[in-house]
């Protein structure tokens, strides 16, 4: 019968004597030694890494929004200053402020402008972060008011008809908890994360853009840099103006776009080590504009 053609089952060994006498497997010293080795490896990797005594260190702590950019800038700084080490640790803006005041960090990363009660610190803006509300390019609505946006994201408004558009149920696309764009959005509209009634939750900006492109009834918010790039490439999205201000990089840079914030490095008023000053000047210089763009931030006016 033609169906069964391949005798691919293993040939049964007639003399099937086991290679060695049957014995229960003992892990033996091999395994223990190996596990010990691996554990030891983990520990030394987890430690502070030692470092040469001669190398100069700089510790930067704070906002997890700023940290990826600061880490990239630090990497570039280290290649130009081979004996310098810059440690970038994220832990939130408040940790950055506290560490700089306490002196346990040289510089703090903060993802907002400093308030009047924080005049004991000095800020240097290294980039600007703005977010834009985006809808599908087929959506005819020219703009939404802040109340309408609040209503849409909290589930009070569920159909485009209610805000003057063609009837279609609104797909609300929100960011996952912990994302800085979510924080800025919540902060601006005075919402808490639990208030938002999302239909879709996304991770990064690209996923948000793709989701809006694929769904004419969707609304989302993403980093303004990546939204403008996509719209400029002819992607089927449109950025909504906010409070009458057009969502452009220029308006983020000059501070007039409402949904934006500066990303700053703070230093104590008492002063800074020479290495710290050098790093600060480097971080604020135009050499890092490509890194700023890559992280979807906006370069500040220089």
């Amino acid at each position: 019968m033609p169906g069964f053609r391949r005798p691919s089952h293993p040939v049964q060994a007639r003399t099937s004597r086991p290679l060695r006498p049957q014995r229960k497997f003992r892990p033996g010293p091999w395994a223990l030694a190996l596990v010990g080795l691996l554990l030891a490896g983990c520990q030394s990797a987890g430690g502070a890494g030692g470092g040469g005594a001669a190398s100069q260190r700089l510790t930067v702590t704070g906002s997890s929004t700023v940290a990826p950019l600061a880490a990239e800038i630090a990497k570039r700084f280290e290649t130009s200053q081979p004996d310098a080490r810059v440690d970038v640790q994220s832990g939130g803006s408040s940790k950055g402020l506290a560490d700089v005041r306490r002196g346990s960090a040289d510089l703090g990363m903060v993802s907002r402008a400093l308030g009047p009660e924080e005049d004991d610190l000095q800020a240097t803006t290294i980039a600007l972060d703005g977010i834009a509300l985006i809808v599908h390019s087929d959506n005819p609505l020219p703009a939404l008011s802040e109340d309408q946006i609040r209503g849409i994201f909290t589930g009070a408004i569920t159909d485009w008809r209610q805000v003057g558009g063609p009837p279609a149920p609104i797909t609300v696309i929100n960011k996952a908890d912990g994302r800085s764009t979510l924080e800025l959005f919540l902060d601006h509209f005075q919402l808490s994360s639990a208030d938002i009634q999302a239909d879709v939750v996304i991770g990064d900006n690209q996923q948000g853009i793709r989701s809006v492109v694929g769904n004419p009834a969707a609304i989302s918010y993403v980093s303004i840099g990546s939204a403008l790039q996509e719209a400029g490439r002819g992607g089927a999205i449109r950025l909504l103006p906010l409070g009458g201000i057009a969502p452009t990089l220029a308006n983020v840079a000059n501070g007039s776009f409402p949904l934006s914030r500066p990303l700053i490095l703070v230093r104590p008023a008492r002063g800074l080590t020479p290495l710290g000053q050098e790093f600060l000047a480097f971080a604020a210089s135009a050499t890092n504009d490509d890194l700023i763009r890559r992280e979807s931030f906006v370069a500040p006016p220089r």
Partner: peptide, 30 residues
Amino acid sequence: TGNVVRTPASLLDPVRTLTANIALELGYAL
């Protein structure tokens, strides 16, 4: 899958899986 944390009532509801939860939030979690 939409990643909304809600027990799905139908096939057309969004869900979030445990793996997606880790991938979405770990980079920003403290």
